[in-house]
């Protein structure tokens, strides 16, 4: 994929640029995984997904300041605690939102879209009131700051590798949950045929609620990962939401593999183009290509036959 693993400068640039794309890919995958599960399962468009991600980022920020102030000895491992807390916080928030809001709007996807957009506005303003309009950044422990010198000219930042490892772990975890566990079997049954799944005794409402919760929880983890590559502000989530949706749609809404493949394609295209063009033109060309491809192949890259 890298066009010959040479030790020339060009090769190094390709490797590092490719790796930068992979970090973007990690955040995209984590965000899109949650969206894909929710959209694939319930047909719900969650416009507030970016805000769930930012909730995870703020939880990470709070955890890091807490560890700094009270447990400086354990500061080096705060990130792992933060991941768990971010998952729990966003997940619980997701459960509440599903119970209060989404549950009443099934079968009205366009209305869900508007309602969750309203929710995202409220959350943004809540973050602004609580944490202030300024962006906050976390302090990384010493061991995460350095970079690994693969060769003389190739440097790979350690926090990037941690994000990647985390993404792979979460992806495998989600894959396992969806395809190997009993709960995953229930979810897939509901996706394929809701009425019959209910008829054979699956509590579809419960499956829906927990799916939404887990999807939001994964967004929280995405937020924790996000703190490592950027600073967190009340509206940071909104910047990613369009890309995340395009990834889900482009990948084929019911396919986890498709989501990963399309996240990879989009992030690599964008970061490779960024090297040759300005950042905004790279984004424009990538998005245009995706929209163009979606017009030619609206069902996305990978599709699953679903009875509607």
């Amino acid at each position: 994929m890298l066009g010959g693993y040479t030790f020339t400068d060009l090769g190094s640039i390709f490797v590092m640029q490719g790796f930068a794309g992979l970090i973007l890919f990690s955040v995209f995958v984590l965000m899109a995984l949650g969206l894909a599960i929710i959209f694939g399962q319930m047909g719900v468009i969650n416009m507030a997904h970016g805000e769930f991600m930012i909730l995870g980022a703020y939880v990470t920020y709070l955890t890091s300041t807490f560890f700094q102030a009270h447990l400086p000895g354990l500061f080096s491992i705060y990130f792992f605690v933060a991941i768990v807390l971010a998952f729990i916080a966003s997940g619980i928030m997701g459960l509440i939102v599903e119970y209060v809001l989404i549950r009443h709007l099934y079968n009205r996807p366009l209305d869900t879209l508007l309602a969750t957009w309203g929710l995202s506005l409220i959350l943004q303003q809540a973050y602004r009131t609580i944490f202030g309009a300024r962006e906050v950044g976390v302090e990384l422990p010493q061991w995460m700051l350095g970079s690994w010198h693969a060769t003389e000219s190739i440097e790979i930042p350690i926090n990037g590798m941690i994000i990647m490892a985390l993404t792979i772990l979460i992806t495998i975890g989600v894959g396992f949950l969806m395809y190997k566990s009993r709960w995953g079997k229930n979810v897939r049954a509901v996706v394929q045929n809701r009425a019959i799944a209910g008829a054979v005794g699956i509590d579809t409402e419960k499956v829906d609620r927990y799916t939404f919760g887990i999807g939001c929880g994964i967004a929280g983890i995405a937020g924790a990962a996000f703190t490592m590559i950027g600073s967190t502000g009340p509206t940071s989530g909104q910047l990613y939401i369009v890309n995340a949706f395009l990834i889900v749609v482009f990948g084929g809404a019911q396919s986890l593999l498709g989501t990963i493949a399309s996240a990879f394609t989009i992030s690599q295209t964008q970061s490779t183009l960024e090297f040759f063009l300005s950042g905004s033109m790279a984004a424009v060309i990538t998005l245009l290509a995706v929209v163009g491809l979606l017009m030619l192949r609206p069902q996305g890259l990978f599709t699953l036959k679903v009875r509607r």
Binding site: L105, R108, D111, T112, L114, G118, L119, S120, I122, Q125
Partner: peptide, 8 residues
């Protein structure tokens, strides 16, 4: 935000 949710 409340308007969006309320209207829907």
């Amino acid at each position: 935000g409340a308007l969006f949710i309320g209207v829907v």
